[in-house]
Amino acid sequence: MSSAAALAHGSGASSIAPIFQAEGVVKKFGGINAVNEATMQVADGSITALIGPNGAGKTTFFNVITGFYRADGGTATFEGRRVLGRPPYLIARMGMVRTFQITKALARMSVLDNMLLAAPHQPGESLSGVLLRPGASRRREREVASKAEELLEVFNLTKLTDQYAGTLSGGQRKLLELSRALMAEPRFLLLDEPMAGINPTLGRRLLDHMQRLRSEDGVTFLFIEHDMEVVMNHSDRVVVMAQGTVIADGEPHEIRSDQKVIDAYLGGGSPDDGAESSSAATPRSHGEGGRVTERPR
């Protein structure tokens, strides 16, 4: 099988224990296999990029492994525990937290409330906690608020703290969604095009923050990205998907010269995927337009 071969071909990955493993994951929509026996692993503490042409099944794969879509086959484990078949909220509580390609700011809630919501272990989120442990609830709320302020500071959102999230610009929403995901205390963070719509300076800061989270807190990242400059310079490993399956997996420099990858994505591109086929080694990152195939339901 080609994906298995690709895995074997990738060097080094096997030496570090994987935090996440997927094997033969299948997702069908009608007669189409949007994800077709995708197999990959993500090394603990790595920053792994997931790339591939539009319609390759990257976002669908995200939706399957985070429980938003029911898988039609395969297995996936996070820290050795099964994830397929679990509902999204339980997967998130395990420490595997995702963001969305199309940002989901909670529009009629303040930026601060968006952040506070994400914090786990809040006794006041259950009715029994509200009634029986109001003190613990308030304590947790204070704890979490200071963490939220720190994160908002990092992403330049401090002055928007009390604004409705719905008033934020697209880029600000993207940053809010990322910092909100960080509030959920993830050990494995799955980001669906985190850089799209963010200005280069903040994008830079976001990448720096990812590096810091990885080195200081040991957070592992898997991110979908189209900007090849970002992928090549800021990830340790690159997984390439095309037509629902993983066609290559390796270090950035290996991927750059992989003939299969050049054929499917970096170079020619498939005939039905004109947007991606224009430039050779660095397909430009592009806006939200034209990506209707991977929208979650």
Partner: peptide, 21 residues
């Protein structure tokens, strides 16, 4: 309360709330 905040989050976007546990 935080409980009420979760309800409002569901009103805004159920999937976002589920993704946050």
């Amino acid at each position: 309360t935080p409980w009420g905040r979760v309800l409002r989050a569901l009103r805004e976007d159920e999937d976002a709330a589920r993704a946050l546990g």
